[in-house]
Design a protein around this nucleic acid. Structure first.
Lengths: 334, 334
DNA sequence: CTGTTAGCGCATTCAG
DNA sequence: CTGAATGCGCTAACAG
């Protein structure tokens, strides 16, 4: 392995001068500079990033830590990557499998040293465990969970999105709407926040809120959603709308409705959440709440860069607005 | 920041003893050991991974480098992660945006230093540029492109999969099958390999190969695929089957067929490739070539660990077999 | 404009 | 079983 001092020797300068040339730091005389660059080329020298990190305390790398790589998080990550690179840093993804222990592990002093900052999509950790985080490195949290005030945090307008989705089906004539993949718990989670929006739309329309229509899904997959909705159909509980808490859940619902010969939107209206690519293309097009990934990406990257620049800035908590994208799976046209 | 020597001082030992305790290296006396661990706990010490890397030349981290994070690669990454972790290493993902320069950049000596090994999903690099890679660190390449012999490499049985898909539609009565998202180029790429399989199935069945049925897509998205197939329909070119080079393309085809009032599989049969989750759930279920992600993941992780253990082992080139998953979008039942 | 000194935090080597 | 010396490769700070 070629080191900086070998280059220095070959160019007849000190290694400090090599460092200055490569980092375009101080002004180095043109002839010296040329000799150094020639030696670099000649020897095929490349900087040792690990040594630079140790010495300079800076990695120029940001980590995005997500529960899993596919679907929703993969799409968000693709939005975030260019923004991080635009600031001259690298982005790497790590995966937690939604395990609280694994999420906590990524926030240890040891692991955080590897990065200039971390974006963590919180799936498993609650406020209490987050209180115990010791590192003072820049962290921005994404997600629905409640988090300690000291962390920068961005969350989607989940309740609002669910309310819009449900109200839109009510406007199209639905009045018995399954909340598929939602939960009744009182803690703030994605599934409970979206259930609250579903409730709000019912109350606003003067419709009764019937807890039998809240159908949790476990594990959280299209397959479970399909089975769960088939079970609802088999039970005889009447319904004319499905609010799916995510598009992945909506996809399972589409399959279950087709299995049962129910037509969308004539017999049952359907709205999803996330506006995944797939919802545009599955006939008749699934109306979905657009979580505004570009805006979310800009928000969290902005918060992180601000935090890296000023570690003492007061923490910010931002909500990212959502909007409804109307397609063929619902009857109202706005 | 707490360092190892501070812990050593607190425990009344040398930093070497602390290191030995934490790495469970040599036998350390039980009482000494207890004192060290107490001091670690007391001070909240955590190892500095960067310093360890510099000194030990090992990061215990593997990088998986992909063109983009979503869809296919996200799903593969989720298969690979547990296998890497089972060997006691971390997995991180990086993204190239399919840019050859960016892929090449990830294979520089500097960037490779950060990892014990790299899995690179080759999208943009050709054999010629790969020849110029200088690093001797462990690298395993994934993908269709031709690569220099010295690299370990795994590729899917693309031709075979496309052949199975096409033959299956022919068996169901199709004889004018669009190869949507395939290309006519002669270089080995995913889109050309799959076109070759489509050809082979025609030849085997004694059907003519008509190049008008090869419809490239640019950019490679569901939206472009939808538009491209709508253009085929508008052109009046008769067809009764669509072989979509990927499920993402198949999704666009489903939308285009629905837009045009064509029924699947009655008017047009459809087969995709990748067996993404979505293909199970889009009515009537999209028949798809299953690329066997678990097997692919086992293969590439196995190759990489072998290479890390023995840098001089001869390079291996593996094909991963595929199989056809039959669903409602085709007429033959096997 | 360039060189010298020093040390980031850890682990290998060898001596006790 | 434990400790001292040494250096991985780089860059901050200062000196010339």
């Amino acid at each position: 392995m070629v080191t900086m001092s070998e280059v220095a020797r070959a160019a007849g300068v000190s290694s400090m001068t090599v460092s200055n040339v490569l980092n375009e730091r101080r002004r180095v005389g043109a002839p010296t500079r040329a000799r150094v660059l020639a030696a670099v080329e000649e020897l095929g020298y490349e900087v040792n990033l690990t040594a630079r990190h140790l010495r300079a305390g800076r990695t120029d790398t940001i980590a995005l830590i997500v529960p899993s790589f596919h679907d929703y998080f993969g799409e968000v990550a693709d939005e975030i990557a260019p923004l991080v690179e635009a600031e001259g840093r690298h982005l790497v993804l790590e995966r937690t499998g939604a395990s609280p222990d694994c999420e906590m592990e990524t926030l240890t002093v040891a692991r955080m040293q590897m990065y200039d900052g971390v974006l963590l999509s919180v799936a498993g950790l609650d406020r209490k465990r987050l209180e115990r985080v010791r590192t003072t490195k820049p962290i921005v949290l994404l997600g629905e969970r409640d988090v300690p005030d000291r962390f920068d945090h961005a969350r989607l307008a989940n309740e609002e999105g669910a309310r819009l989705a449900t109200a839109h089906m009510i406007e199209g004539g639905a009045h018995r709407i399954v909340a598929l993949g939602c939960t009744l718990e009182s803690e703030h989670t994605m599934t409970s926040d979206r259930r609250i929006g579903w409730e709000q739309a019912h109350l606003a329309a003067g419709l009764p809120v019937d807890e039998r229509y809240v159908v949790p899904i476990e594990p959280y997959s299209s397959q479970s959603a399909r089975e769960a909705l088939l079970a609802v159909i088999a039970s005889g509980l009447p319904f004319d709308g499905v609010f799916a808490a995510t598009d992945v859940i909506a996809l399972g619902a589409v399959a279950a409705l087709a299995d049962s010969g129910l037509r969308v939107p004539d017999d049952v209206q359907l709205v999803g959440f996330d506006n995944l690519d797939v919802s545009r293309f599955v006939p008749p097009g699934i109306t979905s709440v657009d979580p505004n990934h570009p805006e979310l990406a800009r928000t969290v990257v902005g918060l992180l860069h601000r935090r890296i620049a000023d570690g003492d800035a007061p923490a910010e908590h931002r909500g990212v607005p959502v909007r409804l994208v109307v397609r063929g799976s619902t009857r109202a046209r706005r």
